[in-house]
Design a protein around this nucleic acid. Structure first.
Lengths: 332, 332
DNA sequence: GTGAAAGCGCTAACAT
DNA sequence: ATGTTAGCGCTTTCAC
């Protein structure tokens, strides 16, 4: 084992040409079983690991699918990723992940970096990009799928839900349940376009019912139970008459629930609560919180499927809008 | 824009040789400022995206760091990843992630796949591998860092905590608090070696105090609040006299807490609870749960730093054992 | 400071 | 079914 063996070493040991060895290792059809076995055997004995870099350069196909997400710490994008992995299972494609930290310039950088690896596909969270980012996506020599959101103008393919609709549906449901003094707690909007769209849809639903938001609070940084709990306490301090709060995430809504538990407020009688995403976490909580399933796993699956299908074919843009599913739970 | 521009196009447009263009784009020192500007300009105008595949093949250096984790859905590995990203920030190295699903054969596959991309480093969760996986790691032509755990024999570098100690410390603490009828709820051990080590340490601490576990329950599949709640209910049904339960994860412990809330048990008076990991989630819960900080972010940071430092230098294996930090919270 | 030649390790395209 | 010839797009020498 003085040096890493390369294909020619395998070929030599098996007594065939490089080409035959190459074909055998990749499972091409036109190799006799006997030859294939010899080659496999030689590769095994040498501990041969193919050099995909050389392979990709030569074949102009990397079998990598770039996945660009804002963060991995939030429970939401990992689920998309698992959908992607599931759909790619059994295919030669492998996902590789880039994280942007909710920064569009960084996103463009990540996309650029990914393109430099000649991916077979690109899956990007969100429809909002920097000028540079969008240009890169438009010029990408591979299928591009924007995921999570369908409210906007995709570069090409798109799989997601309408966050506006998700917010609107929840607003209507809350109004229908008779709540009138309604607050909203969400992330500082600039960094989260989808949360902003949910808020827009939500307020539109209130407006349609002749209502308006009684209170709004935003925070920067990630969602967390603690944050949700603190902001809920603060909001109720200022607006003791609120009868419902809509949160931009389940995690925050759980915080709200924790505040209610701690201060003896009954949910939903004293205060109704609703979140977003349908995190698994909600199951097991003392009160089943109202939420909207954003179908993250399914979105990932479908996006990956689009990449698989459009690899060769010509690409007529596919737009797949899933329906956000509202679960009223027991908290409205 | 009929075809993607390549380096020679940039060079031609800038009126220099490929070599000069290459050097200018990579920021090599021996290029005059004027030439560099011309090249940069040309690249910008053409929308040039370098082909790292060609670059890596030629230079035998990919600037990729492979990160192999069992799962991304659990809140624990994303945190390690963020530590890795943070440490790699500003360096030319980029992490790329592979997920094994807690399956050692799959792990070997993933490692093999990663090696085929000629990474500059490999960061792998855990010390347990299949024969094949271990061989691959041993022969890897790049720094290899095993993370999370230090109870075992690393292939090379290693950063983590002793899970045995984490379990032992918690066991001692629980005993010191006067608990005597103690249960354990954890994942089915085969798939989670670290949880098993914590249990070993935990029972050792009990034994040292002349105690033994009064009840044990294991489950397969991921940790979840719901699972924790259900298993806690079931365990208390069978063993109503328990005064403490140790869980293999915070998520499960939260489930236990939720059960207590729902059934009017006071924590810790009726039942003491302890988890593991120190998830952010714990902050904001009505009772601050006892847990152990596994320093996941820091582990990621250090692992990445090792890769950065050992890139060139000769590799004398570094073993960095961090101390698991126990927080008793209010639940013991 | 810049350029020319050679080749990284593999595979596509054509033989045979 | 197997082999031969080129060449992917870049970087590493080594010249100048």
């Amino acid at each position: 084992m003085t040096k890493k063996p390369v294909l020619s070493d395998v070929a030599a040991r098996a007594g065939v040409s490089m080409m035959t060895a190459s074909r055998a290792l990749r499972g091409a059809a036109e190799v006799s079983d006997r030859t294939r076995e010899k080659v496999m055997q030689a590769a095994r004995e040498l501990g041969y690991v193919p050099n995909r870099i050389a392979g990709a350069l030569s074949s102009h196909a990397s079998n990598l699918v770039g996945v660009v997400v804002p963060s991995l710490e939030s429970l939401v994008f990992p689920k998309v990723l698992s959908g992607i992995s599931a759909a790619l299972e059994g295919s030669p494609l492998k996902p590789f992940v880039g994280v942007t930290g909710y920064d569009l310039d960084e996103e463009a950088e990540v996309i650029r970096e990914m393109l430099s690896w000649k991916p077979s596909g690109l899956i990007v969270a969100g429809l909002e990009h920097s000028e540079a980012g969008r240009r890169l996506l438009e010029g990408a020599p591979c299928p591009v799928v924007e995921v999570m959101d369908v409210d906007g103008t995709p570069v090409s393919h798109c799989v997601g839900i309408s966050h506006r609709q998700a917010g609107h549906d929840m607003g209507r449901e809350i109004v229908a349940r008779g709540h009138r003094r309604i607050g909203f707690i969400g992330t500082k909007m600039p960094q989260d376009f989808r949360a902003r769209k949910r808020l827009d849809g939500f307020t539109a639903a209130l407006t349609a019912a002749g209502l308006e938001l009684a209170a709004t609070d935003t925070y920067s940084g990630g969602s967390s139970v603690e944050q949700g709990r603190n902001l809920t306490a603060a909001m109720l301090e200022r607006h003791p008459d609120l009868d419902c709060i809509y949160y931009s995430s389940d995690l925050m809504a759980i915080g709200g629930l924790m505040h209610c538990l701690a201060s003896g407020l009954s949910v939903p009688d004293d205060l109704a609560l609703a979140g977003f995403n349908d995190l698994e976490l909600l199951r097991g909580m003392p009160v089943r919180l109202a939420t909207t399933d954003s179908h993250r796993h399914e979105i990932g699956r479908r996006a990956a499927r689009i990449v698989l299908e459009r690899r060769d074919r010509d690409a007529s843009p596919a737009i797949e809008a899933l329906t956000p599913t509202l679960s009223p739970g027991e908290s409205l």
